[in-house]
């Protein structure tokens, strides 16, 4: 464990609390992509199922339980509790275009061709692109509530902080995880446009609006 990874994980936790808080205070899931949230459930289930056979640490174990359960809870909030506030006509990205290619890539580019390893690799690739439906939705509406942008910023910062973590681990332990690194860089790259608007508008006290 190092400070980059710890801060990254804390940003990830924060993003989930911000999202749940947003839905509770506004009593709605407006502006939130159900598809992105469903993809996160799939990501966490396929990656963290190893908690049944691989022991790393209490930290690792409890975080896995938290991410699986919180993502399912969020899906419940969007799909049942706040369903009337969900507008499917805005959430139209085709997730098949993400799940299919990620699965094929996981079959081709992996460390070992076995069940648990393919699941892990698939989850890494899928996590990298799972934000697409959410970004697509914001592109369509051209705006986002401020609290939603805080959620996305924390979520983006989480993977961005893993990059210095990988550099640090390379120098201190000699470990390199090319699959996670390449996917993590792609994942962070997808947020660059968002980060630009977040820093230049939201952090200056303005509303998050995309140019028409």
């Amino acid at each position: 464990m190092n400070v980059f990874r710890l801060l990254g994980d804390l940003a990830h936790l924060a993003s989930i609390f911000i999202l749940v808080h947003k839905m509770h205070i506004t009593r709605s899931c407006r502006g939130i992509s159900f598809k992105t949230q469903a993809l996160y459930v799939l990501v966490f289930l396929t990656r963290y199922l190893d908690l049944f056979w691989a022991w790393i640490s209490w930290y690792n174990f409890l975080m896995k339980i938290f991410f699986i359960s919180s993502s399912c809870y969020i899906l419940y909030l969007v799909h049942y509790r706040f369903r009337p506030t969900y507008d499917p006509s805005l959430d139209t990205f085709k997730v098949e275009y993400l799940v299919g290619p990620c699965f094929v890539l996981a079959l081709i580019f992996n460390y070992h061709f076995d069940f648990s390893e393919i699941l892990w690799t698939f989850s890494i690739y899928l996590e990298a692109v799972a934000i697409f439906p959410q970004l697509f939705m914001m592109q369509r509406t051209g705006e986002a509530e401020t609290i939603t942008t805080h959620y996305l910023a924390a979520l983006g910062v989480y993977r961005a902080l893993y990059i210095p973590n990988w550099i640090y681990r390379y120098y201190t332990e000699g470990t390199v995880d090319p699959i996670a690194i390449v996917a993590g860089i792609v994942q962070t790259g997808l947020y660059l446009d968002f980060f630009y608007v977040y820093v230049t508008k939201v952090l200056q006290g303005q509303k998050f609006e995309l140019p028409a």
Binding site: K64, Y111, W120, Y162, V176
Partner: peptide, 10 residues
């Protein structure tokens, strides 16, 4: 250690 030996990151 090879990266594939243990996925210790979240």
């Amino acid at each position: 250690a090879k990266p594939s030996e243990a996925h210790d990151e979240l």
